[in-house]
Design a protein around this nucleic acid. Structure first.
Lengths: 242, 242
DNA sequence: AGAAAACTTAACGTAAACGTTAATTAGGTT
DNA sequence: AACCTAATTAACGTTTACGTTAAGTTTTCT
């Protein structure tokens, strides 16, 4: 047995594990308190590690944050890549996709939190990442193929833009979870309850499928042009001052 | 003229104006950099005011933040309350509502930012507000009445829950704007462009109306129960670790 | 005009957090 | 067994930001 390490039995020093502990602690705290809200000292404490280790392994707070971000995105992509969409009833495939997306948001609050934080700062950190750029999104391609399959059997409407459909699914799944706190506060009820979540999930599935299965009429297209095409956005601008 | 103040002509001291300047500066900075990211000193500087004034007028940073929050919510409510939905073609009313909501998000990035920030911290500050609780939302009631009107002329489907419809509209309008930064980064294109925005707006309108105008089949209802009712959420849980 | 109230300012105390310097320990290598 | 390097620690310097103290200046009211 040449390169087999002996059983570590409570090894005092382990670079990989230490690094991982820091990363996990950072994710947990960044998601709870944001980048500014989390201190390097607190992260170190949770990771049971000396503060200096953060700088040793990651260089600094910002780089650590980026590492957390990339890990989170990778997890999401991995989740998407597992989805089977190339065969079977297109409607069922689509429902599976929507459900999967909804539940991913439900089960991964960290993902939600990190995206919220990034959007608050204009994706300042995400933009520094080389790993995250996704010009040819595999998910978008799979979704496009699925839409095509559905169209060909006359189930889905024609002329759908996969990107728009993707955005719609993402909106419906993400928003409910990202804005759960304010929604619950304003409406004075608990949207995070299991019952509310299931009810919402059913509705979301319904909305997406209704859209895809609706054959757009010429009449409707005309209305669209009326409503959005002619009136410039500035005309109904409202500013935010008192 | 008993209680008519004389013309101030460049008054050196003006409590209301000073207070307002602080509030505006705070809103601007809080939205750009968040609560933690903004310093009282910076706010004072933008407001052209001594730092001490923040404490004099608002008591502290947290209270100032709450004041900004309440002002922003009030502005949104005021915007909603103006909408006419009680007469005219229900479809047109609904399209107007969706468009109005979409464009409000587009034109009020501060509103978006503050909501994002609140959701990041679990609505910690918003919950301290007495003004914001909205148990009997006037908008929800107006929306319910509109749905009813549409149903009665056979235009909209029956059994719609106004709350779910509201959430759907909010999702579709809010998400595109709240997540514009990360979406643009990941897909490598500019979703904030006027063209993208208009294209999205048309799609969103289309999605909402498709849902409302689709008559749910019995078959579909059965599928829903299959898909969401029986399988418990825990069964497809994914955790966020590597 | 004078006093009181409202408003404004400068300067300071204190605490917390980032990142660094430099010394120390453990593990594997020769 | 001595050694060398990777991993770890303690302690410190510096900056920054919150909030306060106490004193000054307008405005307003009598």
């Amino acid at each position: 047995m040449p390169s087999l390490k002996k059983a570590p039995e409570a090894t005092k020093r382990d670079a990989v594990k230490t690094r991982a502990r820091i990363l996990d602690a950072a994710q947990s705290l960044f998601c709870k308190h944001g980048l500014d809200g989390s201190t390097v000292e607190a992260i170190a404490k949770v990771a049971v590690v000396n503060k200096r280790m953060v700088y040793y392994y990651f260089g600094g707070k910002a780089e650590l944050y980026l590492a957390v971000l990339e890990k989170t995105y990778a997890n999401r992509r991995q989740h998407d890549s597992v989805l089977e969409m190339t065969e079977g009833d297109p409607e069922q495939c689509m429902r599976r996709l929507v459900r999967s997306s909804f539940r991913y948001c439900r089960n991964n609050p960290d993902y939600i939190k990190l995206l919220l934080a990034e959007n608050l700062n204009g994706a300042k950190h995400l933009r520094r990442s080389k790993k995250v750029l996704n010009l040819h999104s595999p998910l978008l391609e799979k979704l496009g193929a699925l839409l095509e399959r559905g169209q060909q059997i006359g189930l889905f409407r024609a002329y759908t833009d996969p990107l728009q459909v993707y955005l719609t699914i993402a909106s419906l799944c993400f928003f409910y979870h990202s804005n759960n706190a304010t929604l619950s506060t304003v409406f004075g009820r608990d949207f995070s309850s299991s019952d509310s979540s299931i009810e919402r999930e059913v509705h979301v599935e319904d909305v997406v499928l209704s859209y895809l299965k609706t054959r757009p009429s010429v009449e409707k297209k005309t209305r669209h042009q009326e409503s959005a095409g002619h009136k410039p956005l500035e005309m109904i601008k409202h500013d935010n001052v008192n």
